[in-house]
Design a protein around this nucleic acid. Sequence first.
DNA 1: CAATAATATGAGAGCGCTCTCAATATCTTG
DNA 2: CAAGATATTGAGAGCGCTCTCATATTATTG
Lengths: 339, 339
Amino acid sequence: MKRLTLEEIGQIAGVSRSTVSRVINDHPNIRPAVRQRVEDVIRQTGYQPNSAARSLASRQSRVFGLVMPSILQSAFADPYYPLVIQAISHACNQHDYTPALFLFQTPEEEEKMSQRIVASGLIDGLIITADTINSTFVSKIQQYDIPFVQIGRPPKSNAASISYVDVDNEAGAYLAASHLVQLGYRRIGQLATAHNTAGADRDAGFRHALGDRGLEVDEALVKVSDFSEAGGYQAMQALLDQQPEAVFAQSDAIALGAVRAIRDRGLSVPQDIAVVGFDDMPLAANADPPLTTVRQPINRTGMLAVETLIDIVRTRPEPARHIVLPVELVIRASSGAAN
Amino acid sequence: MKRLTLEEIGQIAGVSRSTVSRVINDHPNIRPAVRQRVEDVIRQTGYQPNSAARSLASRQSRVFGLVMPSILQSAFADPYYPLVIQAISHACNQHDYTPALFLFQTPEEEEKMSQRIVASGLIDGLIITADTINSTFVSKIQQYDIPFVQIGRPPKSNAASISYVDVDNEAGAYLAASHLVQLGYRRIGQLATAHNTAGADRDAGFRHALGDRGLEVDEALVKVSDFSEAGGYQAMQALLDQQPEAVFAQSDAIALGAVRAIRDRGLSVPQDIAVVGFDDMPLAANADPPLTTVRQPINRTGMLAVETLIDIVRTRPEPARHIVLPVELVIRASSGAAN
DNA sequence: CAATAATATGAGAGCGCTCTCAATATCTTG
DNA sequence: CAAGATATTGAGAGCGCTCTCATATTATTG
């Protein structure tokens, strides 16, 4: 099927290219009758403006880049990322933006792609996930003045100048740990993660919760894991030697690994050891036992990232926008609260 | 940082816009000295051609659309999709294409987006995943003559005219089922899926394997599931009543659900019931017990989908290309082969 | 109802590239 | 080394849109 042009739509409707353009872009000062006529022609022909011509003339592409640097298999295996992608995609669809995907598997790939991303004009703005992001890349983005928003708080050092959408990791961990304390557990372990701000914030919340209730944090009960199920399994094995009564895992995947490790020792959850996770992934509810966890609003995170970015593109606001979304504790069987 | 134009690069290098364009597009007939000079300027300035101008003039965007229609949470929870996306992204990066993501959560969203996708010229070609695809959409694509390739075989009725990349589902299932027969199991069940060709092919392979070895398929031992862990759990519960000795699950997620169901009945894998999965997801190796499964080459699938699409865009080959990749059986503990 | 203001429409330039065609430079070869 | 063949370069048009500015139309008001 031949693709029509503005000019041709104008001819059919008996008006000029300019008028059709105005109708499409919702400009004022068009007679209702004319607008109607043009809209009818557009509808009947299925006309869509050529996006290349549009971006060339308007210097806007309505494409957002979704950047996830240095993705390891394990990182992507965490269902969190697919859910974020889904949320962002949905939000982009709603706002007539197209999400372009940039997953970097190696630093070389990142290096190769980044120049194209910033300098080709393909992209109006970037949504950056994963705070392990290479700062070279961020500085390149800033050099070219590309609007961007980060999902997850960047490290404190440059958080002020960077717009981001995050969830209240600290409050969530505080809730989770407090829950365990209130249930009477005293030897409470943590399966923590390193090298990202979400992990640091969850760690802080965990410690505050114990501290506020007069418990000391026993460092022997804090084990470091990555964000995967396998990592949780290993870390829990180490933790088991310390005979914890309960454990706060910094993600649901970790929690599931921990449950598996506990079972493998012949112990049961929550009778012998209570487990609380973080994220409330879909599989948390179906887990065995169903996982007590901290629900974070992934859909809202994605939606707000997109909307914030749109706002930044339009108004270049100063200072940077910082959005922190609330989380909630979802109590299920794994923490032993039913008893 | 100001973005330069071809003209400006030309000025710096002391040649015309046209010559710079030739260098960039690798045309012949440029004196090596000139080419060198221009390339140096490009490198030093970090120049990238404006992609909007390029697509407008060349009528090519170098953007591929990645379409996944009617995604349900559960579908995306299957780690298969993220892995495919990752593979496609990687392949696109290598070939200087940009992958744009179109996930449709509802038919309305699909309807709304499809016209834009086909008629705006944003996209040079489409990679379509999920064979539950709405045929309205396919016919719209064909109407506008957009090159596309499908991942997974389309239904027989229109498979001939559609290019696709698939894995040999039938052979894989045949391997899996034969493996179980050879281990001496006789009451072999299947956790099958409905409404997609992968499931149908795996079902066929399963039946052929039993048939070839003189076993009859007991329909009471075939239960239908969706592709999720939860689905596998439920279907296995039903199957357990039939007291199978072994079960072939059409995906690893289903297999994991089945293992959980078996455990919940107080039985163990593989001592009481052997389990074989399909896909060889990363978590299959870490499962408890490690899962015997059929490995499908997801990376190669994604790579070939992209390369096939590039080929289609360039040469519009007739007839449609059909690629079927081989799979292999990976034997681990869950099938009881170690005994 | 003429004069002025406000509204509605069209014509033209230009966004930064590609591609054709003409012009110039360089190479062959008798 | 002249004439023709060939390799190299530049100028110009045009891709389909947006946006400014000029023009035409309609509304307002003394």
